[in-house]
Nucleic acid binder design. Structure first.
Length: 143
DNA sequence: CTTCTCACA
DNA sequence: TGTGAGGA
């Protein structure tokens, strides 16, 4: 029995997570001081602060941005260079995430491996492309 | 206890 | 970018 994926796709809604500056700092290894500075420079952004909320909060997107900037920073890039790399990396990640989100329509299991339905393959919409996965190995089949 | 803004021996 | 002050 294949499991339909569409209804469970909300598990990928990482954006529902909210972090405070201290948490984001520990998660990324970037100091709160830097996070505020980067925001001031427009490199990252925190969620809107309503009247009652004086403290900054961040969503998953912000976490990803910070994580990527930090990565390139550790790699020797200048802050500006790291930000530039982050911006382009975000474009790739967005495209990949978008693809994964809509390509997987259902998942089933056969002898220790997962069989993932990647949707309609031919023009007549009669055949589907299936990915058989076992750990790192992936084999495709048109059925 | 955490976060904020501002200033800088 | 770090650090300390003085509040919230």
């Amino acid at each position: 029995m294949a499991i339909p994926f569409e209804e469970l796709t909300t598990v990928f809604s990482f954006d529902d997570f909210v972090f405070r500056i201290g948490e984001l700092s520990k998660m990324t290894g970037v100091s709160p001081r830097q996070l505020r500075y980067w925001e001031q420079r427009g490199y990252i952004k925190s969620l809107d602060r309503t009247d009652d909320k004086r403290a900054r909060s961040y969503n998953y997107a912000a976490y990803v941005s910070v994580k990527i900037i930090k990565h390139y920073l550790d790699d020797g890039y200048t802050l500006e260079g790291a930000v530039s790399q982050m911006r382009s990396a975000i474009k790739y990640l967005t495209a990949v995430r978008q693809f994964i989100r809509h390509s997987v329509t259902s998942v089933d299991f056969e002898d220790g491996g997962a069989v993932i339905d990647l949707g309609v393959f031919d023009g007549d919409q009669q055949k589907h492309l299936y990915a058989h996965t076992r750990g790192t190995d992936i084999n495709y089949e048109i059925r």
